[in-house]
């Protein structure tokens, strides 16, 4: 499997459970090691580097700075024993922020953007609902202005109203900051609004890829046609 992703592009990956879409995301983000092949990333300092062969500390540095990973289960992406403000501030400190007042200000700003009330800043995420935890995870990940975000079912557990707000937030970041993202989801409505390009996976292979609206409106592969025609209309 091969593909390119450019700055400011959002790629959606859809497919049924077991199609390999989450596995692909983990391979790209360095959570799993591929048997073969390269994952090239345009690093700030040295241009294109193969993230598979770079050293572990280098890869961790990337994961803390230019990359972000939004997990399907917020518990995998949050520190449950640290306050909401701390969860957001921690990522900032990891990239060198030291001024307490500014870190807190930034944390408040980001909690607001994901619609978490400022009064909850000193609460632990364990006291939050699943949807709030997910929003907190997204704030924690985006606060350092990463250039590439990996998302695994990011809006899965969210109320539709919050989901809409997040989609708008992500679209704004993509447009204004040139953020790139790879989003794994089974929600075709989310993909239509968020992703520029779409890859459809089945049994570990890409069966179809192209412009999102083209793949959804004029699907060429039998599996994609089945997928699109199976969506319930609202």
């Amino acid at each position: 499997m091969s593909f390119d992703l450019y700055p400011g592009e959002v790629m959606g990956i859809v497919g049924e459970s077991g199609s390999g879409k989450s596995k692909l995301l983990k391979l790209l983000a360095g959570h799993l090691e591929p048997d073969l092949g390269e994952v090239l990333f345009d690093t700030r300092a040295e241009g294109l580097r193969d993230t598979v062969t770079m050293s572990e500390p280098e890869r961790r540095m990337l994961a803390r700075t230019d990359w972000a990973f939004v997990h399907q289960n917020p518990r995998d992406g949050l520190r449950m024993s640290v306050t909401a403000g701390g969860n957001v501030g921690e990522r900032l400190m990891a990239v060198g922020a030291r001024h307490y007042g500014r870190i807190r200000e930034e944390a408040v700003d980001w909690l607001g953007r994901v619609e978490i009330d400022e009064s909850r800043i000193d609460d632990r995420p364990s006291a939050f609902s699943g949807g709030m935890q997910q929003r907190l995870q997204i704030a924690r990940n985006l606060v350092t202005a990463p250039r590439l975000v990996f998302m695994d079912e990011p809006t899965g557990g969210l109320d539709v109203s919050v989901q809409a707000r997040l989609l708008d937030l992500l679209r704004g970041l993509v447009r204004d900051m040139g953020l790139s993202a790879i989003v794994v989801t089974h929600d075709l409505a989310v993909v239509r609004l968020l992703a520029h390009r779409l890859m459809v996976m089945k049994d570990g292979r890409v069966v179809e890829a192209g412009l999102t609206d083209q793949v959804l409106d004029d699907p060429q592969h039998g599996y994609t046609q089945l997928l699109v025609s199976s969506v319930l209309q609202v």
């Binding site: 539709v160 109203s161 809409a164 707000r165 708008d168 679209r171 239509r192 609004l193």
Partner: peptide, 12 residues
């Protein structure tokens, strides 16, 4: 392209 359908992110 002005289509016959308005497709937007809700709440915007």
């Amino acid at each position: 392209y002005v289509s016959q359908f308005l497709r937007v992110v809700p709440r915007v």
